[in-house]
Amino acid sequence: MSDVLLKVENLEKSFGDNLVLNRVSLDINKGEVVSIIGASGSGKTTLLRCLNLLEHPNSGSILYHNQNLMDPTIDINKHRMNMGMVFQSFNLFNHLNVIDNLILAPKKLLQKSHEETCKEAIDKLSLVGLEPFAYQSVQTLSGGQKQRVAIARALMMHPDIMLFDEPTSALDPEMVGDVLNVIKDVAKTGMTMVIVTHEMAFAKEISDRVVYMDQGEIIEIQPQDQLFISPKKERTKTFLSRFMNI
C-alpha cells in the first residue's frame, strides 16, 4: 500500500480573487480508497477536478506515474485515459444508447475492435446490473441507472485510478444504495479511488483514509476509523459533530 500512485504537492487554484485551493498536498497510494469530505465550497470538488486537469491549478505539482501532469510537454489526454472519472450529474452522451456510451472511448482511443468492446461492455454492464438496458437510450434511464452506466463507461478504459465527484448527490434517496453498492464492488477489485462525498457512513465504510477539507485547505488526513471516531483537529470535530447532529 505504500506505492504512491498520485502525489499532489502544494496545489493552488483560484477563480479570480477567490482562492479555492491553498497549498494542498496529498498522496494517493496504489489500491487505496481515499474519501474527501468537507462542507460545500471547501474546495474538495475543485481538488478532484485538478487531479486530471479538468481544472488547471495555478501552481504546485501533480505527480502521476512519476510524471508531473503540470508539465506542459506531457500529453494529458493519454494520462486521462488511465484516470476514470464519475461526475455528480452523470454526463452521459445523450445522443448514444447505453452500450455506445461504453464502447465509444475504447474503440476510438484504444483502437479496439467493435466485437471486443461490445463483449466487454456487456460484461461491465452486468457488473453494474444493467445488462438488459444495453440497447436502450440513456435518456430513458433513472438517475441511479445513469450513474451506474457512467461508472461502467469509466471502467471500460481500464483506469488505474477512479475519481468520483459526489456520485450520489444528484440521486433520489432510494437510488443511492444501488450506486454505492456498485462503487463498493469496484473498490473490492483493488481499484485506487478518490471519492468526494457527503455520504459520511459510506465514506466511513469504504475508505482506507479520509481527508477533511475546509476553506481550500486540507485540515486532516486520517485512516477512516480514526477520523470519524477521534478526529485530532478542532475544525474536523466541529464539522463532524454538525454532520452527525443532522
Binding site: 486530471n52 479538468l54 489526454n77 454526463n91 465509444l104 482511443l109
Partner: peptide, 21 residues
C-alpha cells in the same frame, strides 16, 4: 450540456474529438 464535453475530455478525447463525436 457542458458536462458531456467534460466527460469526454476526462475519458481522454481531445477537444476536437469531443466536439466531433
Amino acid at each position: 450540456d457542458h458536462g458531456q464535453l467534460e466527460a469526454s475530455r476526462s475519458l481522454g478525447f481531445s477537444h476536437g474529438q469531443s466536439m466531433k463525436l
